[in-house]
């Protein structure tokens, strides 16, 4: 599904990603962990098509097509979704209007008829239940004045509405209390169907108790320095990121 090969990227001359290699197949859940500033959000942004990051080397393919040459909207339409670490507040844009536009633009690209008002409302109701989101929230401006938890739930709600094949969740767990975390994780889990894949970016192991990954990768200084199963996450939790840092420095010194 997604093939990242030796990806280098940076901003304003500063190198952030220094050769990422990663392959995600249909149905898999990959977790990316790593200390603050290691480049997790940059990777997510580059995959989603944020133009202010400059790709300086490597390639990314989604369904065997060059992803890097594709506009952000076409990536979304092709089935990629990014749940933002910091969802943007957009005053004056109604959440419902926005989601309807997004859903129908994606459907159009996929050769589907636009949803009529009735079908759209039915779908909304269904997905709202999934993440315990209230109608009153959706009649407000997009993310404006939403609490941290509401913003994160709104991201997962949008994911459910857009039905992506690959969802990248960037620290969707940060700032959530345990109940909200469960709700968000349940939302994600009920969307898993063996076909779609996830790239779950997190700083803490906690989320992975609920969204159980097939693979865990550790990102450090813009490179995947260690990969393993879910046990790697537990090891990190126990020993802290310093253990990785020391290991990396050791190998570099040899």
């Amino acid at each position: 599904m997604l093939k990242i090969k030796n990806l280098h990227a940076g901003i304003e001359g500063k190198k952030i990603l220094n050769g990422i290699n990663l392959e995600i197949k249909a149905g898999e859940v990959h977790a990316i962990m790593g200390p603050n500033g290691s480049g997790k959000s940059t990777l997510a942004s580059v995959l989603a098509g944020r133009e202010n990051f400059e790709v300086t080397g490597g390639s990314v393919e989604l369904f065997d097509k060059d992803l890097l040459a594709t506009s952000p909207e076409d990536r979304a339409r092709a089935g990629m979704f990014l749940a933002f670490q910091y969802p943007v507040e957009i005053p004056g844009v109604s959440t419902t209007n926005f989601i309807k536009t997004a859903v129908n633009e994606c459907r159009k690209y996929r050769g589907q008829e636009p949803l009529d008002a009735v079908a759209f409302l039915k779908m909304m109701k269904e997905k709202m239940k999934l993440v315990h989101i209230d109608q009153s929230l959706l009649s407000r401006s997009l993310n404006e004045g939403f609490s941290g938890g509401e913003k994160k739930r709104n991201e997962i709600f949008q994911m459910a509405m857009l039905e992506p094949k690959l969802a990248i969740l960037d620290e969707t767990d940060s700032g959530l209390d345990i109940d909200a975390l469960r709700i968000v994780a349940n939302g994600v889990n009920s969307y898993r169907n063996g076909e779609n894949a996830f790239l779950v970016v997190t700083h803490y192991q906690r989320l992975l108790d609920y969204i159980v990954p097939d693979f865990v990768h550790v990102l450090y200084n813009g490179r995947i320095v260690k990969s393993g199963t879910k046990d790697l996450a537990l090891e990190l939790e126990e020993k802290g990121y310093d253990f990785i840092k020391n290991e990396v420095e050791l190998t570099l010194n040899v």
Partner: peptide, 21 residues
């Protein structure tokens, strides 16, 4: 960018935001 990552075209994203303004 946020709007575009949801599949909304650049032009429509701009319209949504200008109209909101």
């Amino acid at each position: 960018f946020y709007l575009r990552t949801r599949g909304i075209s650049e032009k429509n994203a701009q319209s949504l935001m200008l109209h909101a303004f």
